[in-house]
Amino acid sequence: MADCAARPAMASQGIDTIVPRHSALIRLTHWINAISFLMLLVSGVAILLAQPALFWGETGFFGDPSLINLPMAQNEAQSGWGRSLHFLGAWIWILNGGIYVLSGLLTLHFHRDFLPERNQLAWRTLREVLSNQLLFKRPNIEEFYTYNIIQRLAYLTATFLLAPLTILSGLAMSPGLVAVVPALVEVFGGHQSARTVHFFAMSLLVVFLIVHVAMVSLRGFLPRMRAMITGRTSA
């Protein structure tokens, strides 16, 4: 059973029992993260509108072969405020995310709740979780308190792969930081490659967000919101 410390003897308790689910720090960082993510998304689109084409390699100029031309109407007038909002959002995202990751490591939150458990990796369990998910089966009581294998892998991917990738590829586009650490951009194979990776990493985070909100709604929007705002949930 994952995360036993936070959930006292739930099996013996009734459906309506209220038990703590998320710590105050997780709730606070979750909502700050949500706000800054929206700031980054809106401003990121505003910046992208100035040049809705993606290139690969070091340079990309009008007439150069592009990787993808995004179906957006070019608009150069939105990047001034877009950039300022983007970097304000980025500062909040990085500082808040840093606090979240550090505390999650220290409290063993990731260890307990995100790392798949041995029995979850069994083929039979995987198949069962996947089919339940695809058939929109209402989860059993235990699943209200612990993350299944799909959730665990999704949270791990978003937190430790996609989010760091957006940050690194973003920093790789900074001419100032690259002057200090040229490897930042070299690992991506050039400035335009970093820009393209930045776009796709963020797009995958948006997919994560859509699925995340959809699953929260399917599993009961109000109880889940209550759990993330007040820290308590009733199954």
Binding site: A50, Q51, T59, G60, F61, M173, P175, H191, R195
Partner: peptide, 12 residues
């Protein structure tokens, strides 16, 4: 050097 425009394009 690489001229990096805030709009997104860059050229050497």
């Amino acid at each position: 050097t690489e001229h990096i425009c805030e709009e997104g394009w860059s050229a050497i």
